Amino acid sequence: MKLKIAIQKSGRLYDDSVALLKECGIRMNLGSNTLRVEASNFPCEVLFLRVADIPAYIEDGVADIGIIGENVHLEAQHDIEVADKLGFSKCRLSLAIPREHHYEGIRQFEGKKIATSYPNILAHFFAQHGVQADIHTISGSVEIAPSIGLADAVCDIVSTGSTLLSNGLKEVETVLRSEAIIVANKALSPEKKAIFEQLLFRIGAIKKAKNNKYILLNAPNDNLDKIVSALPGMKSPTILPLAQEGWSSVHSVVQEDDFWEIIEKLQAYGAQGILVVGIEKMIV
């Protein structure tokens, strides 16, 4: 029994997805123009598909799970399950208008022609804001629509914004913030569900590691209680006596978001020799 995993066959999402599977310890022999490959050390096979086709393949059971952009899932509207957000391949779906036009707010799109490859997401966004616009669905090269007179504005995926600028457009409204997600067929067999849970466990360990840092420091014993209170760790910090009397070595894990605030407290409490180490995997 093998779990069938669908990922993008080329592009940035392909690179990030393959990197994630490798971080999960899954070994694959990837050759040029490979469309299907079996892992050598995990019960799965990977299918390389057009990302827009992946939701339908998963709903139909051709693939069991897949890695796609959240924007693709919301636009496709297939009956599949979102199992986890992965934190990479982040982008946004935004509305953009010609650079020379002044922007006065969302109501400016009332009655206007908008070109996009994401008509369902955009229609929902406009409905939420009470705007009625004429949405033109285009598959590719959306940015040129205003310059050729096809539309007044566009709604497209933005990463850096350079493509919009090169086509004389400026970003004015964010419709959706998207990142890679892992989706699954809702009717997985118990055997495939068990394999999927193993994979999610590995992914969870990688995500926790990326969101945390391992720190080591020398602490004066007089302030040890204060330093420990600033370092909750996974349960509590590890404390070891140093050869120098009156000092201890303290080891702990801190979250990336709280890192600098905690470091400032540690320094105020007299901590010295603070070392910060990245974590490859984290299992709690």
Rank of each mutant, 00 (worst) to 15 (best):
G69V: 02
H102L: 13
D53C: 00
I203D: 14
S229I: 05
Q272R: 04
F125G: 11
F42M: 05
A153N: 04
E110N: 07
D16Y: 05
P241N: 12
N221F: 15
P190N: 01
I203K: 01
V183E: 03
A39F: 13
E261H: 15
K208A: 10
T116S: 03
H251Q: 14
N185T: 03
K213Q: 14
D60L: 11
K210R: 01
S17H: 08
E100S: 01
I80W: 05
E171F: 01
F196Y: 05
V172I: 15
G204S: 11
L231S: 07
N29S: 14
S147G: 03
L74F: 01
I182P: 00
G278F: 08
S94A: 13
D258Y: 10
L150G: 12
I67W: 00
L169N: 03
S236N: 12
M1I: 15
G66W: 09
G140L: 00
S40I: 11
K213F: 12
A6Y: 03
T116N: 03
T163A: 09
I80V: 02
L200A: 11
E179T: 07
G31A: 12
E264M: 11
A123D: 13
T160F: 01
A63Q: 01
H129T: 14
N221I: 15
S252F: 00
K113A: 07
L242S: 15
I283C: 05
K207I: 13
L49E: 00
E81K: 14
R50T: 03
L30M: 10
K22R: 15
D84L: 10
D257S: 12
F125A: 11
Q128E: 02
A115N: 00
L216H: 06
E59C: 03
F259T: 00
I239S: 04
K226C: 01
A52V: 14
F201E: 07
I5F: 00
L35A: 14
L35K: 12
L86W: 09
G111R: 07
I195C: 07
I135K: 03
E110W: 02
D53N: 00
K113Q: 13
G233W: 11
D53V: 04
A96L: 03
I121N: 08
H129V: 08
C155M: 04
K186A: 10
L169Q: 06
